[in-house]
Amino acid sequence: MKTSKVVVITARNVFSGQGLPDPRVVLKMFRKGLELLTGASKAEEALAIWFKPEDRVGIKINTIGRRLLSTLPETSITLGLWLGQTICREDNIIIWDRSNEELKDTGYKLSNTPGSLKIFGTDTRGAGYTEEPIVNRNIGSLFSRIQAELIDASISLAILKDHGLAGVTAGLKNYFGAIHNPNKYHDSHCNPYIAELFETDLIRRKHRLTILDALKVQYHRGPSYHPQWAENCKKLIFSTDPVAADAVGWKLIDELRARKGLPSLKEENREPVYLFTAEKLGLGQARLENIEIVEEEV
């Protein structure tokens, strides 16, 4: 029985002449993705399912790969502005990651101006981390005050990449950027840490939606950028099931690897086992047989 739905939207014309995502096309992808995910006739109705007008919404992006391999402004700001113009107040939306430097290096212009979309890192003055560690099973971490205190609802807008240790880095692992000590959770294929971090109340309760940025996918030797193993896939992946979204991301990476003659992640003994841990914890579906995948092109 299929219990989770994942929507994969492709847009062949998503990259502009300069090789950057075209915001108009990206918006079309967002709209179609959410319509198909919810069955709503208008994407705005889909947004209203997850977000209330008074919600402060965090869009957690991943900028560790800087301009070459990150959630780019053309994608995240498009989402933030759309959300701000339809459901929520624009200045209640925060696009964020760990540090202002990483954001700036990725091409973001920091913003904390009343009335407009907010863009800043945890190291912004007035943000920082919680004073005391929050514990869940094997996790003991200080949390970004953005995740802990400044938002009510969260979207994980994560870049999809191969990851040498975890196997895949996507929507769940994106929240490693919400804690002060992600370096402590990379052993044992990041398992069970990625799953247990997501299970933490501050994340699980606030998480509404996963959107995987698979416009350009590093399918081998990630998470660092290696152009010879990066592919313009021109896809965005949507789900309210954070585990299923990542499982479909894993499938995409393995398909790319197969096409390029590379062994699968399982054959390289680095399949993302944390997904199965996440399933056991009741966070979502990790097995493709339990996931309905809807694919469409815009």
Partner: peptide, 26 residues
């Protein structure tokens, strides 16, 4: 730790000892 005081660019950049270079910048 509540407010971060040292942007990454202000940290040192001195080559470490006891490491091995691997292919593909690893």
């Amino acid at each position: 730790s509540s407010a971060l005081a040292a942007p990454p660019s202000q940290l040192s950049r001195v080559e470490a000892r006891y490491y091995q270079k691997l292919p593909d910048r690893e």
